[in-house]
């Protein structure tokens, strides 16, 4: 029973951190599917989201839910500005240029966050409705902070699913990601789709940042956790939205199991070892479809 509880708790913490990886990976995948751009600054969206929520809660006295909503919306606007100012001119450039541009962007955002008055380089925290609460089932103690991440991720995925499935814009976005040219012929404004993709992706990043805050606390370097979302996205095939979430869960669970049952040090590299293994055996990822390249 003792062992069982331990395993359940490890799995729970793995799944909850996996949800975060999945959400960040979802941000990569959305943008990649639509524009073939890879946003290495996705982790910084988390930082921004978390800091905005922090300010709203601690300085302006907003409730957690209002702050979550506002941070998500705020990041959406930020994504829009970013797309219009910087990234639109880069469509069609080589991968290398885009990777470096978004890395530069990440540096810029991260350092700018440290320059904002009252934000700085310190570590902060804010109280949420779930702080210090736990669900007990006999011997089993499950932290609400972790459960909340899982439930809220599920809710967000359902919303996104409904959006892509049932709204005109969602269908237009799926069409664009399948074939841009055909989408243009069907009267879809591809530029608007690109803008909306960035809005959604940045907003998801901000949402993930607020969710993550109770676990890792708010800090300018919390975005580095976003790097772990790369193995998650690759594992899922980089162009599959369910794949990104499943990839995130696999990475999260493996990591937390490695943290408990393997010697110290394995936890941090487990994700990368899985990644390289997957890339060698199945370069298109678990859910990806091998697509032939035209010359």
């Amino acid at each position: 029973m003792e062992l069982f509880n331990e395993i359940i708790q490890t799995l729970l913490s793995g799944v909850s951190i996996g949800c975060i990886y999945g959400l960040v990976a979802l941000g990569f995948v959305l943008i990649f599917k639509a524009t073939e751009v890879i946003n290495f600054a996705q982790g910084e969206m988390m930082v921004l989201g978390a800091f905005i929520a922090l300010t709203l809660i601690n300085v302006f006295g907003f409730s957690y839910w209002a702050a979550l909503l506002l941070a998500t919306v705020g990041l959406g606007i930020f994504g829009l500005i970013l797309e219009r100012l910087v990234l639109r001119s880069l469509i069609g450039e080589p991968v290398f240029a885009i990777v470096m541009l978004t890395i530069g962007l990440g540096y810029f955002v991260r350092s700018s966050v440290s320059m904002v008055p009252t934000w700085g380089t310190d570590t902060y925290g804010f109280t949420t409705p779930f702080t210090d609460k736990a669900a007990r089932y006999g011997e089993l103690v499950l932290s609400w902070e972790q459960l909340a991440i899982i439930f809220m991720t599920i809710a967000l995925i359902l919303i996104l699913f409904a959006f892509f499935r049932y709204t005109r814009m969602g269908v237009a976005m799926r069409a664009t990601s399948q074939n841009q040219l055909a989408a243009v012929y069907m009267g879809i404004s591809v530029n608007r789709v690109f803008s909306l993709t960035w809005i959604i992706s940045a907003a998801v990043g901000g949402f993930a940042g607020v969710l993550l805050s109770p676990i890792t606390f708010v800090h300018m370097n919390m975005g580095f956790i976003g790097l772990k979302a790369f193995p998650a996205a690759v594992l899922g095939g980089f162009s599959s939205i369910p794949g990104a979430i499943v990839g995130g869960l696999i990475i999260g669970v493996t990591e937390s199991l490695a943290g408990v049952y393997l010697p110290i040090g394995w936890k941090d590299v487990a994700a990368w070892i899985i990644l390289i293994g997957v890339l060698i055996i199945r370069p298109q990822g678990l859910f990806g479809i091998q697509e032939k390249k035209k010359v």
């Binding site: 001119s89 880069l90 990440g106």
Partner: peptide, 17 residues
Amino acid sequence: TGLESALYGLMIMLFIL
């Protein structure tokens, strides 16, 4: 303190653009 890395990131972006 973050000035240097901010300019560094900005520099990369400006060169690529």
